[in-house]
Nucleic acid binder design. Sequence first.
DNA 1: TTAGGGTTAG
Length: 582
Amino acid sequence: MDSKLRFLLHKSLVLEQTKQVHAQLLLNRHNHLEPILIHQTLHFTKDFSRTIVNYVKRIILKGFQSSKVSTFSWGCLVRFLSQHRKFKEAVTSYIEMNNSGVPPSSHAITSVLRACGKIESVVDGNSVHAQAVKSGLCGCVYVQTGLVGLYSRLGYIDMAKKAFDEIGEKNTVSWNSLLHGYLESGDLEEARRVFDDIPVKDVVSWNLIISSYAKRGDMSSSRSLFLAMPLKSTASWNILIGGYVNCGETKLARTCFDAMPDKSSVSWITMISGYTKSGDVESAEELFRQMFKKDKLVYDAMIACYAQNGKPKDALKLFSQMLEANSGVGLQPDEITLSSVVSASSQLGDTSFGTWVESYITEHGIQMDDLLSTSLIDLYMKGGEFDKAFKLFNGLNKKDTVSYSAMITGCGINGLAAEAIRLIQEMIEKNILPNQVTFTGLLSACSHSGLVQDGYKCFDLMKKYNVEPSADHYGIMVDMLGRAGRLEEAYEVINGMPMKPNAGVWGALLLASGLHNSVEFGEIACRHCVELESDPSGYLSHLANIYTSVGRWDDVRNARAKMEEKKLRKTLGCSWVEGSNH
DNA sequence: TTAGGGTTAG
């Protein structure tokens, strides 16, 4: 029986099988095999699964007879969490292990050190270091290398160097961790020296240095090192692609993508995100379609692509496909998926979705982080559910420019100008710098509430914080002055613009001219709008309305005739193009 | 030890 079970345990198990085998173990009183079951299950689980974590945790918390076994099992769990990027949970589980008096294994220590580095927790990192010393595991190369990695990531390069020097037999990983430290600290010269000193360079050594140049936007150095390296891994290619994507060189990125021999999921995602940034949704879709096996991150990337490029309906459609287990996909969304999805529903103005997301989060144990909260804040503010928005806002771990901007924008839409002004004052006091988005929200708050004085003040504030006003910001100013009937002033603002006014700016003046029946400014604004836009009928009809309001019937007829003429020309143009195709 | 997915406007 024992051997049969052991055989079963060597196979890859999905949760249902784990449960069955576990039941059999218990039935046959083979409890001593539970740790192996845990190990195998976690070892073979490719995609992160919360149900598996919970299941394993239940077994562990029940307790084992020997502390050695407990150490082993906890180590497996902490490593699993850290490997699947659940760093906070890895640290929490490690602490839980400590609290139950189980001594750490070197596996647990190295995994938790990595996690501490990733979440940049100095306090936790230090206490793990102290424990490693106490438990005598500091002589282990892996643990020592883990310490180099931790301090490198935390930015304590001197500590990293010290830990590195203490390693008796340094392996390439130890060297790479130190290299990483110098790269992180921005000391390229020393990094280069370390790189040259590495006795046996592996792909990671090369990849680290290549990626440092790529991150700096120095693609020519990155590329020449890439060409010089002896054996390229998929990661090397991906770094190069990512570098080009970050510089906006989508075409060069695509060339690399097409040239690389073995594409990984990362390659596809990087390329899709490149198209997302350049706004080329079709190309992203094409890649997504071509992908054979789509993992969760690819779905995330594609949903984000839709959400970021003004296609919220497509984002939600893909999200529901992702959830559908019977379509063969059935992937679990996490906080990252949901933040895009919430953003999409916000664009559609569907507040009810926020409630759904919040209950989904509690039901599935998803951790709500600041980015997801921010997208919910945006959603609730736009839907006028201020209490919910403020509650989330006050609960943020770290308020930043984006979350403040979401609040201010929401205030702007709902006419809460005073609140918007209070918020920007608060953020400035906290040294959180406003950006273009913040000011768009703030100015439109003033505009919607008719607070011209405050609007000017806010506009001046832009200079103070080195935010270059865009044409849109001028547009809001024009809108604000125009609504207040100060058309002359609005026109002056347009003439004072450092850039060419766009149709939005002139459109704001035209709208205001309509509100205040000004033929003079209406004509000027309309003329510019017609020049700038391919379809002028809306502008012309607006002008016609202004003529109507002051009883200039000849002009009304003229304007309408012009509209007909343009419409006709457009139709003729279209049919000519169509005709030439045949 | 390297490479991939997220939030605010228009």
